[in-house]
Design a protein around this nucleic acid. Structure first.
Lengths: 131, 131
DNA sequence: CTTGACCTTCCAGTAAGTGGAACCTCTATA
DNA sequence: TATAGAGGTTCCACTTACTGGAAGGTCAAG
């Protein structure tokens, strides 16, 4: 099948699929007229990429995951370790966002939010102590 | 003062400070020998950038915030609106991460994590239904 | 007078695509 | 048969927010 159909089936834009080929994540065959020709297996591969990317794995992590996907002798513990590390990463990111949010909430709480130029948020950002 | 000292005082690397100049966030004067020459006000501006960036504001948001910082007649409500929007953004991002995490936790929970090639995580990523 | 720290500019690369231009190919229809 | 349109191709540039490195200039100390 051509790239358009592969795109539909994998929920990935054609541009992204070509990009994945550029970085050697997938290598479809070509027809005589140079059109990319995707097999069902290629589509599975693209779906694998679509799902793992949407779960927050980086391209390099996806590459690793794909190599495990290809490796019929992989240990499930290897895959589990990658997924667990990703969960820890997400936890850290969430905590970081939480603390940013708390700081912003504090700032917003102290800002009267009217038409006057006096603004504790700006004061804080500029480094003026105002507490 | 030269860029090294401005960097120390603002907690920003010199490279980043030069970059901020490239994108017109700050315009220090120059000495005869072409060295950048930062005033105290310049350092406050850099600190403002450092703080707002570290609070998760994008460069363009910082540019807007800086223009409010410069505007002695700004309404504090304008600033408050930007900060509030950012809080909403953070909330959305956190929810997104939470749901990614839940999916990954589910996957990991179902993976025995031993030396055998059978792996529910890979199965799920590849689109095979295994429940 | 040379060494070393620090400064300068410019070019390239990062992550993960997206947008657009210029051009090709196939199918359908007037 | 001519042509229009859909969808394919390549390549280059842009995005975000920097970071690294090369090649060279400047200045104070020894």
């Amino acid at each position: 099948m051509k790239i358009g159909e592969a795109a539909e089936r994998s929920n990935l834009p054609p541009k992204t699929i070509r990009f994945y080929e550029d970085i050697d994540l997938i290598k479809p065959s070509r027809t005589r007229n140079q059109y990319r020709d995707y097999s069902d297996n290629d589509v599975y591969r693209l779906l694998f990429l679509q799902r793992s990317r949407s779960l927050g794995f980086s391209i390099e992590e996806c590459r690793l995951l794909l190599s495990l996907y290809d490796d019929k002798n992989r240990a499930s513990s290897d895959v589990k370790a990658i997924a667990s590390a990703k969960i820890q990463q997400i936890n850290r990111k969430r905590q970081e966002l939480q603390s940013l949010k708390n700081t912003l909430l504090d700032l917003v709480k102290n800002c009267h939010g009217d038409d006057k130029p006096d603004c504790p948020i700006i004061d804080d950002l500029s480094g003026r102590k105002f507490k």
